[in-house]
Simulated assay, not measured.
Amino acid sequence: MSEQPVLPERRGNVLVVTINRPAARNAINTAAAEAIAAAMARLDEEPTLFASVITGAGGTFCAGMDLKAFLAGERPSVPVRGFAGIVESPPDKPIIAAVEGYALAGGFEIALACDLIVAAENAKFGLPEVKRSLVAGGGGLMRLSERIPYYKAMEWALTGDLVDAARADEAGLINRLVPAGQALEAALELAGRIAANGPLAVRASKQIIMKARDWDSSVAFDEQRRLSEPVRSSEDAREGARAFTEKRAPRWRGR
């Protein structure tokens, strides 16, 4: 494969972002973090991109921070976006993690920064930092208890043990559990179903779900209207209604 640390590839309205450092188990160095951040910016800025899938080359999702690069003085993060160019500021548009093999430490935190997770049966997840007297600082501890039950999150975080795909699925972490080698294909199918919908509505729906937990009940509907009303008055909303009455597929313009 190309020597580029990250391979962005457009497939219709979906941007596939492949971490391409298989010899290092797709561990994140500065170049990889910067390239992922650039891909996330492209996703949000290009109006004809509606969703994204992030995955890893060579049968591994991501082993976290590249320790050799770190010891050489590199930082695996970028301003604003944070570690791997994603964990502190994920894209506004939907992103799916397609996980084969290991998603460990920062790699698991990348997956947790995504909106959906498709995992192969051979996938293994974990935040093993405590085994080295470190703290998972890429958002994993904050997000994990939002994704799975509290006591499961505590067990996974405090033991640092690996969690196989079956256990992760049982805990509710995974949207699709598929045979090994099929995670990307399944993620693309799911992304295609999302991208078939009105992009403005999808984007606003994601933002409402993400932000609603921080809204006080006294302002929640006002905040929701702030995000939903521009969609309601958009050209795409009229196109959606027109396409329904004309019994045809809608032609979204993202405005």
Rank of each mutant, 00 (worst) to 15 (best):
D161N: 14
L104V: 08
V130M: 13
L49Q: 01
A180G: 06
K131H: 02
L162N: 06
V118P: 01
A191Q: 10
L184Y: 12
A136I: 06
S133C: 09
W156P: 02
F70G: 03
P149N: 04
R176T: 07
W156N: 00
S77P: 00
E88F: 05
A191H: 13
A111T: 01
A105K: 09
L116M: 06
F70H: 13
S77Q: 12
N122G: 03
A51C: 02
F50L: 01
R81V: 01
V135S: 12
S52P: 06
G58P: 04
Y102L: 13
T159H: 05
E146L: 11
L144H: 02
M142A: 09
N175M: 11
A63E: 15
E146S: 07
G172M: 14
G73D: 04
R176S: 04
Q182R: 15
L71T: 08
G85L: 04
A111H: 07
V135D: 04
P94T: 09
G160P: 07
A186V: 12
Y150Q: 05
K124W: 01
E121W: 06
K124N: 05
F50Q: 06
G137P: 04
K131I: 09
D92R: 15
Y151E: 08
V178P: 15
Y102D: 11
G181N: 08
F83R: 09
I86Q: 11
I110D: 05
P91Y: 08
G85Y: 09
K152A: 13
I174P: 12
G139V: 06
G64I: 10
L127N: 02
G138A: 08
L71W: 15
N175D: 15
C114G: 07
L49M: 00
L104S: 08
A84N: 03
A171Q: 10
P179K: 04
S145Q: 13
V87L: 02
P79E: 02
L67P: 02
A191C: 15
I110E: 01
M142E: 12
P179R: 03
K93G: 05
V163P: 04
L104A: 09
C114Y: 00
L49V: 00
A136L: 12
Y150P: 00
A153P: 09
G82V: 06
G139I: 03
I54A: 02
A166R: 15
R81H: 10
F50W: 06
V135H: 10
R81A: 15
G85H: 10
A111N: 03
A98H: 12
G56L: 10
R147L: 07
L144Q: 04
G101W: 11
P128S: 10
D92L: 14
D169K: 15
A171M: 10
L112Q: 00
M154Y: 10
C114M: 05
G181V: 04
S77N: 12
D169C: 14
S145R: 13
P90F: 00
E109A: 02
G106K: 12
I117M: 07
A119Q: 10
L127R: 00
I95N: 07
P179W: 01
D92Q: 14
G172A: 11
V135I: 11
A157L: 09
P76Q: 03
V53Q: 08
R147I: 06
A166H: 13
A63Q: 14
L162T: 10
S77A: 15
G140Y: 09
F61H: 08
E170M: 13
C62Y: 03
A171T: 09
E100N: 14
I148Y: 07
L144T: 04
K152T: 11
K131T: 08
L112D: 00
G107F: 11
